[in-house]
Computed example of a mutant assay.
Amino acid sequence: MEEENEQGVYGSFLLACYDEHNEEYQTICNIGTGFSEQQLEERSTSLRSKVIKNPKAYYRFADTTDPDVWFEPSEVWEVKAADLSISPVHRAANGIVDPNKGISLRFPRLLRVRDDKNPEHATTAEQVADMYRAQKINHSHNQEDEDDD
């Protein structure tokens, strides 16, 4: 869901998780770095036919989110990130971990496109919340270990 540059490729992408309870896609991050030229061309070519005029009613995003182009949900991307954080902008797992905020991925990087999954089988909002909670537990265990040294 983003911006096309002079070379005819999109420069960044707004990604979402799927909330199966509310049947909606909730933004989780903007990814725009770490792509090879070939990856950008492949993703842009693949998504160009999925452009839609306006966001769907079941897209959850902040009012400040204003991509140049919106896409039909069509691809599942496997993404690696530094960590997950509470976000006033992104809507992933909104209300599950924080009553008014969502969760976002920090420093996301595309690993691969998951051709074996359709968008409704993307990571769910509940799974995002679980990953966030697990990360908090792991961080506290790591700090305890460091304090023992």
Rank of each mutant, 00 (worst) to 15 (best):
D68Q: 13
E42C: 00
E24N: 10
H139A: 15
P67M: 02
S12A: 13
E126V: 02
D147M: 13
E23V: 05
T123D: 11
D149E: 15
K80P: 01
R91C: 02
M1D: 15
L14E: 10
E146T: 08
E3Q: 10
F35G: 05
D83M: 06
W77T: 03
A134E: 15
E41S: 12
E72K: 13
M131E: 14
F71E: 10
K53R: 14
P67N: 05
N94G: 00
R43W: 14
N94P: 00
E6P: 00
E4P: 04
E3C: 04
I28K: 08
K56C: 08
V51Y: 06
V79C: 09
R91W: 00
L14W: 11
N142C: 05
K53I: 07
P55S: 07
R114L: 13
E72R: 12
D130Q: 12
H141T: 01
W70E: 08
E72F: 04
T64M: 10
T33N: 12
G32F: 06
I103M: 03
S104F: 01
T27C: 05
D19W: 10
P99R: 07
F107N: 12
L110C: 03
P73W: 07
D130H: 06
N118C: 07
L40C: 05
E4C: 06
H121W: 04
W70H: 15
T45E: 14
S49P: 08
L110Y: 05
D83Y: 11
P55F: 09
N54V: 01
I86H: 01
L15Y: 06
Q135G: 11
L15W: 05
E6S: 12
D63S: 14
K50F: 05
T65H: 15
E126C: 00
K101D: 08
R114S: 09
V128W: 02
N118L: 07
R43V: 11
G102A: 00
W70Q: 05
E20W: 10
E20R: 14
S46G: 00
E24M: 04
N5R: 08
Q135H: 12
V69M: 07
V51W: 07
N138L: 13
T33W: 08
L40W: 03
D148H: 08
L105E: 13
H141P: 00
G32M: 06
V9D: 08
F13V: 03
A81D: 12
